[in-house]
């Protein structure tokens, strides 16, 4: 068995190397190379905090976008985040949070905040895509931060869902549940279900770490790995369960409740019928 295990790991590494060499010819290879170059140059720039967030910025913002965004920001966000987005007692500074953060927070309806609570909750989106883009442009202009991910990296069909699954279980499942059904955090906070969340917002959540979610920078989980995670999430979301209704993917508690209420309920109905006299 021990021999077996060591040969197994070797095979695992070969598999990995093979995967790497395959990726070299991948359409994304040039992109990844560019990314690495950016990482190296960015390393010098990155002093302490919001460093290694360099990535391909496909969304290019014009000066006009920034200006329009600035207006929208003053009208809708500045009351909490302050003029110039430098923060206040009520809300954090947005300097350096990047376009991705704005796109996620506003694009999922979490911002503008409806009310104070343990955490901002997703709700119907308040702005048009164009407006969100303009506000993102404005915030991105204030300081370097994670940008909105490109279409290519978000293409779930290019990802490796089994690698993504492994990464998801190690990095995400403890909060979001192994089937991405969500879970509880302390004092009323919670990790939401990821079911139905768009590829872009999943990616942005990872790079920006909204609210209490930790940041999974590209130095921690590479863009390709993020793509794999997205591929995994989209796979399980689309395929559903082979066994039938999922009962919320909540595990043994919902299964137990189901057998007590529905299972035993039907059994009792039959026992009553069985022992009653025929009319």
């Amino acid at each position: 068995m021990k021999n077996f295990s060591s040969s197994g790991t070797t095979r695992g590494r070969n598999h990995f190397v093979k995967a790497l060499s395959q990726r070299r010819r991948h359409p994304l290879a040039a992109f990844a190379l560019l990314l690495m170059a950016l990482l190296v140059t960015g390393g010098i720039y990155a002093a302490a905090s919001t460093a290694n967030e360099a990535q391909a910025q496909t969304t290019t913002f014009t000066a006009n976008d920034v200006e329009e965004g600035s207006k929208l920001f003053s009208a809708n966000c500045a009351s909490c985040h302050g003029m110039g987005a430098t923060g206040s007692d009520a809300a954090p500074s947005l300097v350096g949070v990047g376009a991705a953060s704005v796109d996620f927070q506003v694009g999922t309806g979490r911002m503008p905040l409806q009310m104070n609570g343990p955490q901002a909750q997703a709700k119907p989106v308040q702005f048009t895509e164009e407006q969100i883009r303009q506000m993102a442009a404005y915030v991105a202009s204030l300081g370097a931060g994670p940008s909105i991910p490109s279409e290519e990296i978000l293409d779930a069909s290019e990802g490796d869902s089994s690698n993504g699954g492994e990464l998801f279980r190690v990095n995400c499942a403890m909060c979001h549940n192994a089937a991405a059904a969500g879970g509880a955090l302390t004092r009323g906070k919670f990790a939401p279900s990821i079911d139905g969340t768009s590829e872009k917002h999943i990616y942005e959540a990872m790079v920006t770490g909204p609210q209490n979610m930790p940041v999974f920078s590209d130095a921690n989980i590479s863009p390709e790995d993020k793509q794999d995670i997205i591929a995994f999430l989209k796979t399980i979301e689309e395929q559903g369960s082979p066994g039938g209704a999922e009962l919320g993917s909540l595990g043994p508690v919902s299964e137990g409740l189901f057998i007590w209420v529905a299972g035993l309920g039907v059994v009792i109905a039959f026992t009553v019928w069985l022992t009653s006299r025929s009319s």
């Binding site: 770490g209 940041v215 999974f216 921690n220």
Partner: peptide, 11 residues
């Protein structure tokens, strides 16, 4: 060390 930015968590 430089990979670990403020707010991130590594397993």
């Amino acid at each position: 060390a430089s990979d670990v930015t403020i707010g991130s968590a590594f397993h």
